[in-house]
């Protein structure tokens, strides 16, 4: 049984059918990437898994539990955690407050302190700015904060929605090195990216989404070598 199992998932916005029966899975300790063009339905997929969008049909199973139709906060408390597109840090609150909110559902004070120290260790910039308003930071720093905040929830599966979006090349490299670190820690990741080249380098397995349907899937190294994928997504 896989960690996350999506089966024949349909979802949309009123008359717009953004997902038309997608099926995929994420195994323990795996990085799975979901790639596809703008508007393919990647964010809709993550938001439906997170409970922000109610699916029209299909099932979502996480760690053996059917979580289809659950409220978003309940899903996060199960440690299925999303870093949404556009970072969505809370601009009016400080860096430290944002990080602590990531641990909102946790009770283990000692563990929270430990994780906080670890994050400040890994993200030195956040440490320097811990009492600054999050909104005053640069895009790259905000992305670090968004990832750090999600890690404070001790994710059993981390979903990242276009973490490199809008960042300068150097920062893109930095973001992917952070993802590699997280993978190293053994945290499973579902990575949504338009930067397919980078995503396929880090992923173990990948699915290609087109207009709400999965049109290719396979091991990331195989997809990287697939001429059809190269011309459509890596060209």
């Amino acid at each position: 049984m896989a960690l996350l199992e999506i089966n024949q998932l349909h979802a949309g916005y009123g008359a717009i059918k953004a997902l038309r029966g997608i099926t995929f899975k994420v195994e323990q300790a795996q990085v799975v990437s979901l790639i596809g063009a703008n508007g393919a339905g990647k964010s809709t997929t993550l938001n439906t898994i997170s409970g922000l969008i109610k699916p029209a049909a299909g099932t979502i199973r996480f760690d053996g539990t059917d979580i289809t139709g659950w409220r978003a906060d309940r899903i996060t408390r199960r440690q299925l955690v999303q870093v949404p597109e556009g970072r969505q840090i809370i601009a009016t609150m400080t860096v430290l407050e944002n990080l602590m909110l990531g641990a909102y559902h946790r009770q283990d004070k000692a563990g929270i302190e430990q994780d906080l120290e670890r994050i400040f260790e890994r993200f030195k910039r956040l440490n320097e700015r811990r009492h600054q308003k999050a909104g005053s930071m640069s895009g790259g720093e905000q992305q670090m904060l968004a990832v750090g905040r999600a890690l404070m929830a001790r994710p059993r599966l981390l979903m990242l929605d276009e973490p490199s979006m809008g960042l300068a090349p150097l920062l893109v490299t930095e973001v992917f090195s952070i993802i590699a670190d997280i993978k190293e820690q053994g945290i499973p990741i579902l990575l949504v990216e338009q930067n397919a080249r980078k995503a396929l380098q880090i992923a173990d397995y990948a699915y290609v989404l087109e207009r709400g349907e999965i049109v290719h899937e396979g091991r990331a190294d195989q997809l990287r070598a697939d001429p059809a994928i190269i011309s459509a997504y890596l060209g």
Partner: peptide, 24 residues
């Protein structure tokens, strides 16, 4: 307080608060 921070998070954005595990 923790609950006050949750209130401010919900005030900022209900969806984001949900992703943080806060029941709006």
């Amino acid at each position: 307080t923790r609950i006050g921070q949750a209130m401010r998070a919900v005030a900022f954005n209900q969806r984001v608060a949900g992703l943080l595990g806060i029941n709006s």
